[in-house]
Design a protein around this nucleic acid. Structure first.
Lengths: 146, 146
DNA sequence: GTAACTCATTACCCAATCTAAATACCACCG
DNA sequence: CGGTGGTATTTAGATTGGGTAATGAGTTAC
C-alpha cells in the first residue's frame, strides 16, 4: 500500500487524472489517424501487433469491452481485411484472431501520421513535461488493466 | 521544441498513452461515483468548482465538447438542482452557469467515495508508480487543453 | 452421460455526442 | 438610424460506440 502520507495529493491527482483522461479521450477520438477506423479498432490492432494473436474473449478483456462488442469490432476489422479469423486448434468454441499483412502496412502508415500530431503537440510541451509523460505512460497502462 | 533525440521514445509513449487513456476512460465511465451523473456532467461540476462560473460556450471549449452538447448537459444539471443559470450581465445572448450549494455538497460526498476507489487502486501500484502519476497529472491536463 | 459452465454470437437498446439549421443578440459601417 | 455580418445558444435529427439479455454450440466435471 503506497504512501498514505500523501493522501491529499493522491486525491488531487486522481481528480485531475479523471478529467484529463476524459477530455483527452474525446480529443483522441477526433484525432484518429485513419478515418473509418474507430479508436477501439485501432487499439485492437495495436494489441494484436504486440501480442501476435488472441481469441475474441481475450481481446474483450484486454480492451475492457464486453464480448458482444468485441465480436462486432472483430467483424468490422475482418470486413476491412485487417484481421484474419481461424478456428482455435483445441477448442472449437473459440476462434483465433490475427492481423493481416495489410494491417501491418496500415499500422506503419498510421505511425507516420501520428508523428505529425506528435510534432504539433511538441510545440506545447517542454522536455521535462515529456519526460514525465514517458514515465507515467506504463503506469497508466497498468492502471487501465487494474 | 523538445528533445528530438527521443523521438522514438515519445512515439512509443504516445501509443501507450493513446490506448491507456481510452481503456481507462471506459473504465472510469463505469466507476462513476454518483449513479445518475455522467462523467462529463461530473467534469463540468469540477470545472465550475475550480473556475467559479462560466458561460455554456466557455464550458464547451473547456470540456472539448460541441456547444449543443453543453446545452444538454447544463440543462440536465439544472434539472438536478446542481447548477444555476443566470442572464449574462452585459450580453443577453449569453448565460452564466454557476454551481449551487447542493453541488458543493455532492462534490464533497463524491470526493469521499472516490477515496474508496483510490484505495483499491493503491493495492496495485507502488510508491514510485504513484509518484510518476502525480507528476504526469498536470501535464495530461495541459495536453487535454492542447 | 448428463449437468453445469464457457465462448461466441444474435438481437435489441441506450447514452452521449455530433452536425445542421433556427433564433436571438451584438457590433460596426454607411 | 438601419442593415449586414458575426457570435451564443438552442432545437431537431442522425450517428455511433458500447451494453444487456438471451441463444447455440462445445467443453469439463461429476
Amino acid at each position: 500500500m503506497p504512501d498514505l502520507l500523501h493522501g491529499d495529493e493522491n486525491e488531487a491527482a486522481v481528480n485531475s487524472l479523471r478529467s484529463a483522461v476524459m477530455r483527452l479521450g474525446r480529443r483522441l477520438k477526433h484525432q484518429r489517424v485513419d478515418e473509418s477506423l474507430s479508436p477501439t479498432e485501432m487499439s485492437v490492432l495495436g494489441t494484436l501487433a504486440r501480442c501476435g494473436s488472441a481469441t475474441p474473449g481475450e481481446l474483450a478483456r484486454k480492451e475492457h469491452v464486453q464480448p458482444p462488442s468485441m465480436t462486432r469490432i472483430v467483424a468490422l476489422l475482418e470486413a476491412k481485411g485487417l484481421v484474419r479469423l481461424e478456428p482455435h486448434p483445441d477448442d472449437r468454441r473459440q476462434k483465433v484472431v490475427s492481423q493481416t499483412e495489410r494491417a501491418e502496412a496500415m499500422l506503419e502508415e498510421s505511425r507516420r501520421k501520428r508523428n505529425v500530431w506528435l510534432a504539433s503537440l511538441a510545440e506545447g510541451l517542454d522536455d521535462d513535461e515529456w519526460a514525465k509523460l514517458r514515465a507515467a505512460a506504463p503506469v497508466l497502462e497498468k492502471l487501465a488493466h487494474l
